[in-house]
Design a protein around this nucleic acid. Sequence first.
DNA 1: AGACTGATATTCT
DNA 2: GAATATCAGTCTA
Length: 198
Amino acid sequence: MSSFLDPSSDPSEPGVKLFARHPADVARDLIGMILTVDGVGGRIVETEAYHHEDPASHTFNGPTPRNAAMFGPVGRAYVYRSYGLHWCLNFVCGDTPGSAVLIRALEPMSGLEQMRERRGADAARLLCAGPGRLCQALAISREHDEAPLDKPPFALEPSMQDWEIVVGPRIGLTKGVQTPWRFGLAGSKFLSRPFPKA
DNA sequence: AGACTGATATTCT
DNA sequence: GAATATCAGTCTA
C-alpha cells in the first residue's frame, strides 16, 4: 500500500489521507506525483481545484447524472465529456462532498509509444499537455468514471522531491476566474499553457 | 503569432 | 436555444 494512504481507512475508499482535504490543498500536493494507467503515464505537472461552493464547479448547482462521482467517496476518478468530444480526468476529493481536482497535464515518462499511437505522431510536449490530450494518450473514458485510483488500471505514486509550485487563475472559465486554483510545476515544458507572470 | 471555426454531450434557461 | 473545466485545423500577418 502506498504511503499516502491512511492504513486505518477502509480499503474500498482509497486515499483518505491525501484526498479528504480542501481541493486546493490536494491540487497543490498532486504536482510531482507519478500517475499511470495500465503502465502508461508520467509526472503530474498541472492541476486545477473545483469546490462545491465555487460557481465554476460542475457541482455548484447540485447533483446531476454526470457529476455523481463527485458526490461519492474521495480517491476515485470523475471522468466527464468536455465540449461533446474530449474526456477530462478528475480526482474526487474534499473535506465536504462535491469537490475534485482536474488533471490538466503530465510530463510523459512511460509508454510514450502507446501515447503516440493513440494521439498520432505528436512531439512529447504535446502528448499530455491539456486535459483532453491527456485522456486520449492514457485511453481514459467513461468506463473509468468512479474507478478507485489506488487499484489497476490506475497507479499513483508519491514523490519524495520538493518541487517549486506556481499558482494562477484557472483556464477556460467565465465564472470564478479570479480564484487562483491552478497549480503547476515551475519551469515545466509540459504545461498546457504558461502561467501568467507574477 | 494570434484569430476564428467546427465538432457536438451535457446542463441550464 | 445557449453555454461550456477543449482541441485541431485554417486562415490572416
